[in-house]
Simulated assay, not measured.
Amino acid sequence: MDNRIKNLFERYQSEQANEQERIIVETWFADLEKEQKTELNETEKIALFAPMDDAIDRMLFKPRRLLIYNRYLQAAAVILVAFGIVLFKYQHTATKKASVISYTLISVPKGEKKNLLLADGSTVFLNSGSAIRIPSNYNVKSREVSLSGEAYFEVKHNAAKPFTIHSGKLLITDLGTAFDVKAYPEDREIHVAVESGKVQVGKNKPNGQFELYAAAITRNQQLVYNERDNSHAISPVKTSDVIAWQQNKLSFDNASFGEIAPLLERWYNVSVKLNGRSACRRYTVSFNNEPVDHVLNVMTRLAGITYSIKDKVVVINLKNCRNMK
């Protein structure tokens, strides 16, 4: 055997083995783990290394040579002494590979919505133009996801594995609840509204310390975090109105046209351009699964605007809109 197996183990342990050599060693270990015994007799010790020797021959393109029994056994015994060290190295490498975390990104285009069932039985309903990122180790030791956009969560409570959402600068942790998170990056605000149960909200400061904003937001309460000035406020809210989008109800709540425009863009997958002054009144109105032109016709009567639609581009003229007075 010419010490080839021993040298191969040494190269593997010192991380000097090439890709083909590493595959030979790791394949051998994987096969060994399936059939490993506490004690090996002499015949088994010889047979133990035969597949590896064959693999080395194939790699080197050399013909198979006759093996002298005693010499093979002696070499095998030497390698078995170092077996524990190399096996540790192999297992450490395998563990390191297994610990690499990958992510699944699920995004919903504008004009669409999507329902998800997570591995722990929790459900997520994503609104238009939203995305959620789920790690491969979700529900192993923890339950953490990242959200951009808006989603409604119904969480299976597990005190040992709190459900945490990373959204912008905020960390939103479930305390056994159903709640809505709205965090579109272009809005520069994050809204957390609770339908049932409790939610904790805070953020990690630059020094790594956690800053708590609310220990327990409860039913029909909403926290609004303003990214512009790093402020937050908690106020009463009718959560059933906040989450009405799940039933395809488009709602404007004391909204200006500057706030209405991005809602229309996400809801109908159109581009909205505003022309003229923006100091118009604010409007509270709801629409039940109606097409965009019906919505704009209603806003025309309410606000005195005019509009045009061409190739999914909506132009709203605010010149004659009713002002704030």
Rank of each mutant, 00 (worst) to 15 (best):
R64L: 10
F61A: 14
F61N: 12
G84Q: 14
L80G: 01
F61T: 09
L73D: 05
I79A: 06
V86P: 03
I68T: 11
A82K: 15
L80Y: 02
A82V: 01
L67R: 15
V81S: 06
R65T: 08
A76D: 01
I68S: 07
L66G: 05
L87C: 03
I79S: 06
A75Y: 04
A75R: 03
A77H: 02
Q91G: 01
I85M: 12
A76E: 03
L73T: 06
M59H: 00
R64V: 08
G84E: 14
L80T: 00
L67K: 15
L60F: 08
L67I: 15
R58W: 09
F88Q: 13
V86E: 04
R64E: 11
I85E: 15
F83S: 02
L80K: 03
R58Y: 09
R64G: 01
R71G: 07
L80C: 02
V81K: 15
N70V: 05
M59Q: 10
N70M: 12
F88V: 02
L66H: 10
Q74L: 08
Y69S: 08
I85P: 01
A76H: 02
Y72T: 13
N70F: 07
Q91N: 14
Q91P: 02
I68L: 11
Y69G: 07
R65M: 06
L87S: 13
A77C: 00
R65P: 05
K89A: 08
L80I: 07
P63T: 04
Y69P: 04
V78P: 00
Y90R: 06
L73I: 04
F83A: 01
R65C: 02
L66W: 08
Q91F: 07
I79V: 09
L67T: 13
Y69N: 10
K62G: 02
R65S: 06
Q91A: 05
L73Y: 11
K62I: 15
A75S: 13
M59E: 03
R58V: 10
R64F: 04
A75Q: 15
Q91E: 15
A77P: 00
P63S: 06
L80H: 02
Y90W: 13
Y69E: 12
Y90F: 14
R71L: 12
I79N: 14
V86N: 04
V78L: 12
A77N: 12
L73H: 09
A76R: 01
P63R: 06
F88H: 12
Q91I: 07
G84L: 08
A75C: 06
L66M: 09
A76Q: 00
V81C: 04
Q91C: 02
Q91Y: 11
P63L: 04
K62D: 05
K62V: 15
Q74V: 07
L87A: 10
R58P: 03
A75V: 03
R58A: 13
A75T: 03
I85R: 15
I79D: 12
L87H: 13
F88D: 09
F61K: 14
L60R: 06
M59V: 04
V86R: 05
A75E: 14
L67Q: 15
